[in-house]
């Protein structure tokens, strides 16, 4: 490029160098809003022992079913007189763990399978993908319930069953992204240079499919939280008396005619957690300019 062109285009380039604050402000609103919600949730979960005003597992029967806005119990008490705010704070831990960990496990296994399928010969690819199609043929939550019910209640079993369910959709997204890259020039070059399969997968492909996977998995956490809470709603998650948003929801809904507002508390909490991750995922999608996929879980 000659000096004159630089001069002509120069004004635009110089104006485009922002300071750090301006760069944060230029992040998509979703990243900021969603990120804040997620950060707050994590803080509450971590600081539950400090923040929670009462015990989460015991209460006095004489204080049962106090409504929201009660002094001392801003979110009321449940059927056993336990403080709902405290249970909500402690319950954030298993709810977040059961939402995030399965996505991490699913991402690890699913991405590996997607890479394997996307980079392999046709035979291997269809073997992997058709096998995953079987998992995919089930309504996700129902398969998680079948596995969870067989294994029995408990957060570990809930994580196992959700992980199995999430592998298939993540693998599909990963494989789709790999296939889009397969014919790119740098891939040809890597293959021509005689690089090993695993080297290509990790050095060339993974960095390129990472943004799409990150976006997808972030939104998937939003869904996984709903599923995890759903499992404990059905009694397949955390075992009582330990709190978990899903089981709190199922508890409090028994008293819906007496204290309608109480049952909304955990419901709203699950909604906020879910929308936090969904908004964050949507913001990341805009940040990385990733297309919306048609792969659902």
């Amino acid at each position: 490029m000659s000096a004159t062109t630089v001069e002509i285009a120069g004004t635009a380039v110089a104006a485009d160098r922002p300071n750090r604050l301006a760069r944060v402000a230029r992040l998509p609103a979703g990243v900021l809003v969603g990120g804040t919600i997620v950060l707050l949730l994590v803080l509450v979960a971590l600081l539950a022992p400090v923040l929670a005003p009462h015990s989460a597992t015991s209460g006095s029967i004489s204080e049962r079913l106090w409504d929201v806005y009660t002094i001392g119990h801003p979110l009321g008490t449940d059927g056993q007189g336990r403080d709902i705010l405290s249970r909500l704070m402690w319950g954030a831990r298993p709810t977040l763990i059961a939402g995030v960990v399965p996505v991490l496990i699913g991402a690890l296994i699913g991405t590996s399978l997607g890479l394997l399928a996307g980079l392999s010969r046709r035979g291997v690819r269809s073997l992997v993908m058709r096998t995953l199609d079987v998992i995919y043929a089930f309504p996700a939550i129902l398969l998680a319930i079948a596995i969870g019910a067989a294994l029995g209640p408990g957060i570990k079993n809930a994580i196992v069953s959700l992980s199995i369910v999430l592998i298939a959709p993540i693998a599909r997204v990963a494989e789709g992204e790999v296939l889009r890259l397969r014919d790119a020039d740098f891939m040809e070059a890597a293959r021509a240079s005689g690089a090993r399969w695993s080297t290509i997968a990790i050095r060339q492909v993974l960095p390129n499919i990472a943004p799409a996977l990150l976006v997808y998995c972030t939104s998937l956490v939003g869904l996984a939280i709903v599923y995890a809470a759903g499992l404990s709603f059905l009694g397949l998650g955390v075992t009582p008396p330990h709190p978990d948003w899903g089981s709190m929801l199922n508890d409090l809904r028994q008293n819906i005619y007496e204290r309608p507002l109480l049952s909304l508390v955990p419901a709203v909490a699950i909604f906020i957690a879910s929308i936090g991750f969904n908004v964050l995922g949507d913001g990341l999608r805009k940040l990385f300019d990733v297309r919306e996929t048609e792969v659902a879980a």
Binding site: G222, L264, S274, V279
Partner: peptide, 22 residues
């Protein structure tokens, strides 16, 4: 619609049940 995606079906069900009860 992003909000709708994030609402668990059991939350909507509960809200509507409340509506019906009230």
């Amino acid at each position: 619609s992003l909000g709708a995606i994030s609402i668990p079906q059991y939350t909507v069900a509960l809200l509507l049940l409340l509506f019906a009860v009230e």
